[in-house]
Design a protein around this nucleic acid. Structure first.
Lengths: 182, 182
DNA sequence: CGAATGAGTGAGTGATTAACCACTCCCTCT
DNA sequence: AGAGGGAGTGGTTAATCACTCACTCATTCG
């Protein structure tokens, strides 16, 4: 509607993006049910009322955050695949796994996805989580050419890493933790 | 204190046990943050006020439910191990995995543990989850004599199964779901 | 019998929450 | 200059939550 030159992004769109980025931190701690919209707004540096101008309701906001995380993971896998030593499936998977391990080192993104899986009794959230897995599996398959069995093991390892980060197993000096951390 | 014969269990203790059993269903749907104490009380068939007589607060109640689930899983693993064809680690692990798959078919117990992992930003809950994993890993190790690598794969497979049940992947007719279900 | 004890509840309380509305400020275009 | 619209907020509301209290009913024991 407005002008025809420069300054393409409307400020509201920028804000929405800021909210998604900062909301990860907020939702990571206590998930969909346990996080208040006020906390999300504070993390983004805006009022709670304006948060509701940017997103119609809490569920839509959370789904948008999940989609954002899903996209970040796909970027991460892509970078990993690009850095693979050879084009062999196993090598590509290993490179992707390494990139993923680095990505989830900060915990927040990972915890959001764990929380999203938990909150999948809400239909809209379940769909977002399913879509996230669907895109990941198909991307990994396409980029690596790995077999079903390899892909399954890839995701099994990833989920184990998720949980270990989730309970902060690395901070423990216990045999079970060392066993699972490998 | 009371009499010396018969009727050993106090009724309150029986009630507490009923609550733990039925609370699994309640907490499974929306987790620690999303489930109200009223819902838990209703599921157990008692008033919310009496729930608070049986458990000092919501967190203690939830931790007790997690411990109860943890014990159920260990029983399940034990039954699986007992039914193993041979005493070889791989055979014992396979039998345990089969028993576990059967156990989580009803979703509820599994979802509680997933939710517990999510809620591990509460220190008491994190400790309960860690204890649950610790007991599982050490039990599996002792009962099967498997290597660290085998144990890691065992839990990776288990967690993948958890998530797939969590998002009800079996109900989908999509390639990614078939790949991960194996 | 009567007192004591434990099971169990109805009716709240204060705090918090998602969502809404009326409003101000500021920028841009005419 | 001034109108129009978008960015952004303070204040509120109806509902809901964890948790409490005063109370009743049933059993048990001396």
């Amino acid at each position: 509607m407005t002008m025809t030159s420069s300054r393409r992004l409307s400020t509201a769109e920028e804000r929405r993006h800021t909210v998604l980025r900062t909301a990860i931190k907020a939702f990571a701690a206590r998930g969909y049910y346990g996080t208040t919209t006020t906390e999300v707004a504070k993390a983004a540096g805006i009022s709670q009322a304006y948060l509701y101008r940017l997103f119609p309701d809490k569920e839509t906001l959370f789904v948008a955050v999940v989609d954002y995380c899903s996209a970040r993971i796909r970027e991460c896998h892509a970078e990993g695949a690009a850095a693979a030593a050879t084009a062999e499936p196993a090598a590509v998977l290993a490179a992707m796994a390494a990139a993923y391990t680095e990505l989830i080192a900060d915990r927040d993104l990972l915890m959001v996805l764990l929380h999203a899986t938990c909150a999948s009794s809400e239909p809209a959230i379940r769909e977002a989580v399913r879509a996230c897995y669907a895109k990941q599996v198909e991307y990994v398959r396409a980029a690596s050419g790995a077999s079903d069995e390899q892909i399954r093991r890839f995701f099994g390892d990833g989920l184990l890493a998720n949980v270990l980060v989730g309970v902060d197993a690395a901070a423990l000096d216990a045999r079970w933790a060392r066993t699972l951390l490998g």
